[in-house]
Structure formats: structure tokens, C-alpha cells
Amino acid sequence: MNARRIGAIAATAALALGLSACGSSDDGGDAGSGGDSGKKLKIGIKFDQPGLGLKKGTDVTGFDVDIAKYVAKELGTSEANIEWVQAPSPQRETLIETGQVDLIFATYSITDARKEKVTFAGPYFIAGQDLLVRADDASITGPDSLTGKKLCSVKGSTSAQKVKDKYPGVQLQEFATYSECLPALSTGGVDALTTDDTILAGYAAQAEYKGKFKVVGQPFSEERYGVGLKKGDTATCNKVNDALKKAFTDGAWQKAIDDNLGPAGYKAGPGNPPTPDACA
């Protein structure tokens, strides 16, 4: 007991030092030293994304959460020692840089701009931007049948920007969250909701919307979900990649998809499971 308490204090002190030593590349390495089951890990996830990362009461569920738990176990942290931190899209880089989280599993697409700030392990999933339409709507079959239609997405998101740039004949309603698009979609105010197919499948699988909406299934972009890590932390990156490769082969990855996105009839698209990139 006493030893554990001292250990916890030492860990806190080390963390504080890590913060003050801002940016030195070796201090993040201890996150992956493994073997010590009492080690805490702070993992950033989405709290509001059904099927991917959702917090209800004290429970967290979703595909990202299941993969995060698996990777944490491989890094030597039991489920009880994971601290779940909310990682909203605009704050993800900051959370990593300031050390408020150790790992991020939050539908975090790997992009070159983000690579300047964080190191990515993975990808662990390849999603694509797709469309969610009313189940009885046959007029939208893919991105080419969108002209003159009304779409809904989240303000500032990559999906919203892509629609604006690539499909100028489309009108776009932007809300703060995807949940606000769903009532507008069901009354016919908008014709489709667009974002990553995983997120759409998560909404379509929710009990209150079951059978009302369908995912079109014609992805028109490639989003490679990676695990966000402190910049330059190659040691942890390699460990996370090993854990991901193991999850791909032992069935844990497939099970996580079936459990969380399966109810919407979602199947992982081409290229899945992906091959993790080499850690730079």
C-alpha cells in the first residue's frame, strides 16, 4: 500500500517535471515502459460520438474506446487505471502538447498539418466520408447525385469543408453537433447528413433512430484514424503499432467493429485493417 502510494506521488512528480521540461522528447517514453500494472494512462476520446466514443454516466463505450482499452492492456495498463479525458476536435493537439493526455483515440485523422504537432501511431482504421439519408429516400445514391440537395454537417469540420469545395451545387446547413442534424434530416429540412461513415453508422445504430436512416455506402474520401502521441515519442509509437497489429490478427479489432457499428449493418470498407505506418 505504502509503496504504491509513493509510486503514485513519484508518478505525479514525474508528470509535473515532464510538463515543465516542455517538449523534451524522452520524457514521454515512460508511458510505454510496460509491465507495471499500477501505471495510470490518460486517454483522450470523444464523449459524444455514439458507436465510437460515448460517455453515458460513468460508462464509456464505442469502437475507439475498445481499441484504446486493448492497446492500454498491451502497454501494461489495466482498464481500472485508464483515465478517460474528453478530447473535442479543436483541442486535440493542445491536449497532447501540454501532456493532459498520453494517447488520443478520437476519430483523429492523420494529416500532414497535424503531424507537425503530434506523432501518430497507426492508422488503426480507414474511414471515408459518406452520406446518411432517410431510409425511404432513393434519390441520393452517391456524391454524384447531390446537385441541388441540402446537406447537413458540423461547422468547421473537414467533411463540411470538403462538400463546400468539391460540390458547389450543394447547400450546406452547419450545426454545432451532428445530433442537431438528425431532427432536420427526419423532417425533410435537409436531405442528407455527411461525415465519416463510422460516425454515420454510429448514429444509424442508435436505438431511437433504428430503421429511419441508412448509410449510402459510397465513401468519397479517405480518413485514416491514427493514435495521437506526444511529438517525437517513437518508443511508445512502436509499442502502440505492435499492439494494433496484434489486435488486427487476433480478432479483437473485428470484434470491436461488430460490437459497436455492426447493428447498423456497417462493414469496414476497403483497405481495412490497415497497415500501420512506420513511426517517424
Binding site: 498539418a113 461547422k155 468547421g156 450546406l172
Partner: peptide
């Protein structure tokens, strides 16, 4: 007003922060 999709200043700020890293 950006939460109901009006393209005013704070909405653009969110968009830039999504794309650029100099938040």
C-alpha cells in the same frame, strides 16, 4: 450564430483551427 451555420467570424475561427495547427 455560428452554431446555426452562419459564416461569421467565430465560425471561420473553428474552421481554421481544424485545418491549421497555430490555434
Amino acid at each position: 450564430a455560428s452554431i446555426i451555420g452562419v459564416a461569421e467570424a467565430s465560425g471561420l475561427m473553428k474552421e481554421i483551427m481544424e485545418n491549421e495547427t497555430a490555434s
